Amino acid sequence: MSETKLRDQICLFSRSLFERGLTSGSSGNVSIRLEDGGFLTTPTDSSLGFLDPARLTRLDAAGHVLSGDKPTKELPLHQALYETRNGAGAIVHLHSTHSVAVSMLPEIDPHSVLPPLTAYSVMRVGHTALIPYYRPGDPAVADAIRNLHGKHTAVLLANHGPVVAGRTLQAAINSIEELEETARLYLLLRGLNPRLLSQEQVEDLVDHFKL
């Protein structure tokens, strides 16, 4: 896909996320890895609902800005996920309400934040790791992600929000939306002892869909 079409795709999908309330104000950021190893990212302090394709930040493979506005302050966490997830072609970070709420709960497992509630939560998200709280834009969050050694496509930043990598932007968005819906289900079912997918059912999904 041409860079022009990728720019348009970022703006189109970002506006959809914004209009459906999955991120608000100037929160959230999106990036795509280009064929030359460089990146397109949303600019810092920009609203995902009102992006200009021409003003998206274009960076080279080393992270140097080539054109466009100043990049998102969360660029280090994007770079860390790309470094550790070789198949990642796009990354989406939101401040979606239910995922943020789950990140604050004391009982969650930092190695697998949400239990296997549905087949699609297993297929599209898998195990989500919890990253301890860091100030937004703190480069130390990148080291925390690198310490996961690429084992997770989705991470949840404590008191902040989810970050999901995908082979394509559409795949990353599908995954982060599935994560948000799973977080919503978890909050609705919290304390009700819901029936989870069994280990055998999870393994069947993994084997059948080659996850």
Score class of each variant (00 low, 15 high):
204 D>H: 09
21 G>A: 07
204 D>L: 13
6 L>A: 02
175 S>M: 06
180 E>P: 09
168 T>V: 10
195 R>F: 03
149 H>E: 14
104 M>E: 14
52 D>L: 14
16 S>E: 14
9 Q>E: 15
103 S>C: 06
205 L>W: 10
24 S>M: 13
208 H>E: 14
51 L>Q: 00
21 G>R: 01
4 T>V: 11
164 V>R: 01
62 A>R: 13
30 V>H: 05
192 L>P: 01
63 G>A: 04
106 P>Y: 03
65 V>S: 12
167 R>Y: 02
101 A>Y: 05
96 S>A: 02
26 S>R: 14
4 T>K: 08
131 I>A: 11
22 L>G: 04
183 A>T: 09
120 Y>W: 10
97 T>R: 15
116 P>S: 09
121 S>A: 11
38 G>A: 02
86 N>T: 15
194 P>M: 08
35 E>T: 15
124 R>W: 07
134 Y>K: 13
161 G>Y: 14
56 L>D: 01
70 K>D: 10
24 S>D: 15
49 G>H: 09
128 T>E: 02
72 T>Q: 13
58 R>D: 03
118 T>M: 02
118 T>Q: 02
160 H>E: 01
23 T>V: 05
118 T>L: 10
121 S>W: 02
80 A>H: 11
106 P>H: 04
89 G>P: 07
129 A>N: 04
87 G>D: 14
96 S>V: 02
208 H>R: 15
90 A>G: 01
194 P>N: 12
21 G>H: 05
34 L>P: 09
156 L>K: 04
21 G>T: 04
133 Y>H: 12
127 H>W: 03
123 M>K: 13
208 H>V: 13
156 L>Y: 05
87 G>N: 15
88 A>P: 09
165 A>G: 07
174 N>P: 03
110 P>F: 00
63 G>H: 11
33 R>T: 04
118 T>N: 03
138 D>Y: 03
83 E>N: 15
192 L>M: 04
91 I>H: 00
23 T>Y: 08
64 H>S: 12
146 R>V: 09
65 V>M: 15
9 Q>T: 15
62 A>L: 11
98 H>Y: 15
96 S>E: 11
43 P>C: 06
41 T>P: 03
117 L>F: 01
39 F>K: 06
194 P>C: 12
193 N>G: 05
21 G>K: 01
109 D>W: 04
8 D>Q: 15
